[in-house]
Amino acid sequence: MQLLLSLLFTTMAFGGPSTDSQQRTENDREIEEVHAVLQESAYEVMHLAGRYFVRTPVSVYELDLTAASVSPLKVHGLTEVWALAESGQGKVIALGRTNGTTRLLIDIFGGDVSDLPLPSELASHAERLTLAAGKTAVALASKKKVFWWNGKQWSDVLLAHAVPSDRDRAYVSPHFVADSLFVALNEGEWAAGLFALDTRTKKMKRVCAPPSDGSLLYLTEWRLSGKRALLMETAFGTARLSSLTPAGQCRTLATLDANFSQSAGADLGVPHVTGMDLGASNEWVVLSGTSGLFHQRKGQWRPMVPGLDDSTGRFGFQGSSNIHLSHLRVLFTTLKVAGDLAIIGTDSVGVLLVDMKTGQIRRVTLPLSKKFM
């Protein structure tokens, strides 16, 4: 099942044979109409301090699940919000910029917001940094360095294999299990891996070894569950869910591959798995970037998001207008499960809220992408 969304255009019929020039004009107009409805890509859905947020390439928005709407997250002292994280004390930390200065604000929803001074080389850093928080520690990463705050001072380590800054989709991201620091590298097809960083010796050691076939796996999901982390790594044809302890012990919990798709009796679009999570009954929910949402119930897999109706070319969202996209293939980018509700991010048409009990789908619109404006 290929989940395609396509945009229906109303075009005028021109008398007489069309010329190449007329055809190009019509194509340009259709492309403009597609761009006019494209929304910011939902890179990540976050659940912090009991609230939900959506991170896009441009900003961070707060998500209201009841109203099915978003609003820009406004943080006093920041004109741009780049990233959020929650510390072990339940305080939400915001990273962003104001007047050309990078700032890190602690406890943005509390009554006493504090500004954690950054290393001087980061104060005017133009590149967007990634952020993570542990029980008491905080970490930031650029494509060349990892920085961490141990509660008293900042330290840093220069990556032995820095990710080239000209590769837009490449990234370095820090993560914590308790106050143990891990670093994920993703340089596309060139390099990838998850490493434990010893903050005393500044040495990095690979954890969660790649599959026996040597495939490169890229970290696509990370969430804390008690005293461990649940992480999902993907590669073309494989998705692996593992648990990771503070000591760096990694255990595979589930693997999706071509054989799994056959045994599940459904085309899960495994080469494009973008999310895995546990539902209310502790059963797996899987998101494929191209095939939609699948839910495991009593050992059986079933699709939860309706596919494209070939007879009508329609994809319907309950409670909103149908969306038709004939010139664009929309991908599902991220998944967060809240009880029986699946929150699905897309690359261009907002966020979908799927009730996995009733099948109802609501769509949350995001701001239009300025990339095409």
Rank of each mutant, 00 (worst) to 15 (best):
Q296F: 05
L7V: 12
K227G: 05
G15E: 05
S180G: 04
R297K: 15
A338K: 12
R128I: 06
A36G: 12
V146H: 01
K203V: 04
P211K: 01
A184H: 08
A338Q: 10
G339K: 10
A338T: 06
S69W: 00
A229I: 12
S155V: 01
R228I: 12
H327M: 13
L253G: 07
T201Q: 15
D112F: 06
L308H: 11
N150K: 09
M204R: 05
P210I: 02
P164E: 12
K143H: 08
T25D: 10
G16D: 13
W148K: 02
W148Y: 14
A196D: 01
D179R: 11
G313V: 03
D156H: 15
K144G: 06
N259I: 00
A170Q: 08
S212C: 01
A123V: 15
G15V: 04
E187I: 04
G292P: 10
F317N: 04
F182S: 01
A139D: 05
W222S: 09
R97C: 02
M1C: 08
S215H: 05
L197R: 02
D20I: 09
R302T: 14
L293G: 01
P303E: 02
N27H: 09
G193I: 01
L331G: 04
W82L: 12
L65Y: 10
R329M: 11
R200Y: 00
V81E: 05
N322W: 13
S326V: 11
G237F: 04
K357V: 08
L7W: 06
T102F: 01
F53A: 08
A247H: 11
E187W: 13
D112H: 12
S87W: 06
L8C: 03
S281I: 00
K227M: 06
G15I: 01
L308G: 00
T79M: 09
L268T: 04
N186T: 03
V172N: 07
F236S: 14
A258L: 13
L366A: 08
F53I: 03
V330L: 06
P174C: 02
T199F: 03
S155N: 12
A280M: 10
D355Q: 04
L8Q: 12
S69M: 06
R29W: 10
V54H: 08
L219I: 07
D179A: 08
T255G: 04
P210R: 07
G265R: 09
V75W: 01
T358C: 01
N27K: 08
A239Q: 06
V81I: 15
C208L: 15
A170D: 14
L105Q: 06
H175Y: 14
T56Y: 02
